[in-house]
Design a protein around this nucleic acid. Sequence first.
DNA 1: ATTATTGTTGGTAG
DNA 2: TCTACCAACAATAA
Length: 264
Amino acid sequence: MPELPEVEHTRRNLVRWMKGARITHMTATDARIAKPSPRALVTRLTGRVVSAIDRKGKWLRFVLDDGARVFCHLGMTGWFEPGGAEPLRFERASFDLVKKQKRSRVSYVDSRRWGRMELAQEDIPSWTRLGPDPLSDGIDLELLATKLARRKKSSIKEALMDQTVLAGVGNIQAIEALWKAKIDPRSRAGAMTVKDIRTIAKGIDWTIARTIADWAKGDEGEDNPFLVYGRKGTPCPRCKTLLRRAELGGRTTTWCTGCQALKR
DNA sequence: ATTATTGTTGGTAG
DNA sequence: TCTACCAACAATAA
């Protein structure tokens, strides 16, 4: 469940479930996910207390009481949930916890196995490489303008999804933000004016806040909560033009040809 | 059976 | 050194 808002929602859950708790027992079953190996992860974490859980972009960082760190990415299909007695379907790791004599269990589930749980002593490149996080750092317009100006060929949507430009904006959030900003996702990144960039930043803030609020409601309402993403062929909520879909940089993109201006 | 999917990485070319 | 492009990764749901 992996863009900034979902990962932030996950982080808030994990803080409630795990912060200050001691890991009394854990499992890790998949060598593709647990690095450097499931065994190394289990050995190093068992008996430790979780002192902090941070997020940057789509990455999570667990800090343990002895300084060890675990960097976690949910990939495309990873999530955490309270675990029961029986292992869940596609469970790849689990934590037995104790905090003030209360015991609990948290599971990591990931059908597609693109997620990561990487043990390290220091911050890893995947983490340090990330650009500013729109939610926790805010969007620096000057810096964003500089980075976009360097993109001579790529579209504004692809540039926004580059994790070194802004950390945490993925396909859905980029689509929603550009719709809000009334900018065609195919527009060249380098063609954005200062005003465009300000509008895009507002669009990003808007969609992130909106999606986090949706998650906080906890509806788990299975229907699409987004205004534009996945709504090809339906009327634009703003101008009623039928939404169009195309591929951009290998990712499905939906937008409105009626009210999103193309700038080349 | 076919198609689409919320993401990152590593290789290659320029 | 930086940008741009693409295949690979894997498993499910419609």
